[in-house]
Amino acid sequence: MITSGDIQGHWHRAWLKSPSFNDCETNVHWMQCGSLYADIRIPPNRPDVRGASALADLPDAALMALLRAEGFAGVVALRDDVCTWHREINWHGRPEAEDSGLLELNGSDQMMETGVYGDYAELWNRRADHPASAMHLMAGSAHAFIVSIGQRFVFGVGQPDAENSRNTIAALEAGQRTWALQEQLRHVFAFGRWDGACGLAELCTNPLLEGQPVLSCTGDGALIWHAVDFLGQSREVPLTQPAQVRIDAA
């Protein structure tokens, strides 16, 4: 039987297979600490954003390509060998179906996931499992999750009650840039590394932020989100009111 201890750590997906789709190129990082998790999925062949100073500078086709990314975070629940990822925040808004998978360990650092409500299989490899920490915070009215394993982290910001993005994407396909699109792209999911007190993004739903600090820790231990909106305007948002903290250290 799969236990909470079995799924802790930084997992990188090797591949996904389904009857109609095989994927070994999307860069997927899932980090788990205690019951909290964060997951980011960045597809290959992203648009060239060189020369752009803001997402608003990009053509609609480039924005459509960026919206192929995914990010979600929240808490997991285990029942026997089935894991359910409750998406407290989801970059694409409220999910249309429950996210549950049947897990099977292959040794200590490899795991197979097969869909409970979908016909798919995913192979995961564990990169590290300590030291680990996780936080659920507030970023103004939005929620933020940070899960760190070793020097790496996955960070996500979003609204728990955000509408599903299908209408936003349909509007963009019709050439309409809605306020909902700007709101979605204002929030971010990022995978990165800690460089001292600075969290540098290596992969991000906003590629203009890659190589840039998305998080920093002040001298008194407070965390700051370096937010950048659709128009390229930046501001520093304190991450406050911790709702949950899970820390495993070794």
Score class of each variant (00 low, 15 high):
64 M>C: 08
76 V>F: 12
108 S>P: 00
133 S>W: 06
129 D>L: 07
113 E>I: 14
86 H>R: 00
85 W>L: 08
140 G>D: 03
74 G>L: 02
75 V>Q: 12
134 A>D: 01
106 N>S: 15
135 M>E: 01
70 E>A: 05
141 S>L: 09
96 E>D: 14
83 C>H: 06
109 D>Q: 09
67 L>N: 11
76 V>R: 10
118 G>Y: 12
142 A>N: 09
137 L>S: 01
62 A>Q: 00
135 M>N: 00
76 V>A: 06
93 G>Y: 07
69 A>T: 09
86 H>V: 05
99 D>N: 11
113 E>Y: 13
72 F>Q: 05
117 Y>D: 13
137 L>Q: 03
109 D>E: 14
77 A>F: 06
102 L>P: 02
98 E>C: 11
102 L>C: 14
138 M>V: 02
101 G>T: 15
122 E>H: 07
114 T>F: 08
137 L>H: 00
106 N>E: 15
138 M>S: 08
133 S>P: 02
68 R>C: 12
133 S>Q: 13
144 A>Q: 07
87 R>T: 00
77 A>K: 12
120 Y>H: 08
77 A>Y: 03
141 S>Y: 01
62 A>L: 06
116 V>A: 09
92 H>I: 02
131 P>A: 08
131 P>M: 02
119 D>I: 05
122 E>C: 11
87 R>L: 01
129 D>R: 12
117 Y>S: 13
63 L>Q: 03
96 E>M: 11
98 E>Q: 13
121 A>Y: 09
139 A>S: 08
135 M>Y: 10
94 R>S: 05
70 E>N: 11
133 S>N: 09
92 H>T: 10
79 R>I: 13
131 P>L: 04
133 S>K: 10
80 D>Y: 09
78 L>S: 08
85 W>M: 07
68 R>F: 05
86 H>W: 10
63 L>C: 02
134 A>Y: 03
130 H>T: 09
103 L>Q: 12
130 H>E: 01
